[in-house]
Design a protein around this nucleic acid. Structure first.
Length: 153
DNA sequence: GCCAACGTTGGC
DNA sequence: GCCAACGTTGGC
């Protein structure tokens, strides 16, 4: 079992919205970065857990946990001309972009803020804290995972 | 709104 | 294959 962190701008899709989805499940579409795509397509497995991170907001931070309930499959928003995520290079015969399905597992009683994560020395290895990191899907180590949860007491 | 960091594109 | 230009991300 692997751990992950996935980012979303809450103005685009928040954990509150996820909570209202049918079965509290959504397809994690729209990722258009090759490194992140590879994680979605090849590495995220059913049963893996991921921190749900709210980015580009004030304050940014981790707001909960989701579980991977369907492994990588073609992101069909890339085929849809009307979609913001349309990519003419991707086709059903040769899909370029992938997504997984995630289900809400837990909404934290409070956000673990970016500022808080930064203040914890043992978390300075987290990808999210690396200078200039913009990847929207990153792996989290078991010890990082545990340390974040410890902040909730 | 600013801007540093980064990924992608395309001319050569 | 190099690299400048450009677009995007995301903290502040």
């Amino acid at each position: 079992m692997n751990y992950w962190l996935i980012k979303s701008e809450p103005t685009a899709f928040s954990i509150e919205q996820l909570a209202k989805e049918k079965n509290q499940t959504t397809c994690w579409d729209g990722v258009r970065n090759y490194q992140a795509r590879n994680f979605l397509r090849d590495d995220m497995k059913r049963g893996d857990l991921a921190f749900f991170y709210h980015s580009n907001c004030s304050p940014p931070g981790i707001v909960g946990i989701v579980e991977v309930v369907r492994e990588g499959y073609p992101d069909d928003t890339a085929f849809d001309k009307a979609s913001d995520h349309y990519d003419p290079r991707s086709s059903k015969e040769n899909p370029q972009w992938y997504m997984v399905d995630v289900r809400l597992k837990e909404t934290f009683p409070r956000m673990v803020t970016l500022e808080e994560l930064k203040s914890i020395p043992s978390l300075n290895t987290m990808k999210i804290l690396q200078r200039g990191n913009r990847l929207s899907v990153t792996p989290v180590t078991p010890s990082e995972w545990k340390e974040v949860l410890k902040q909730l007491g």
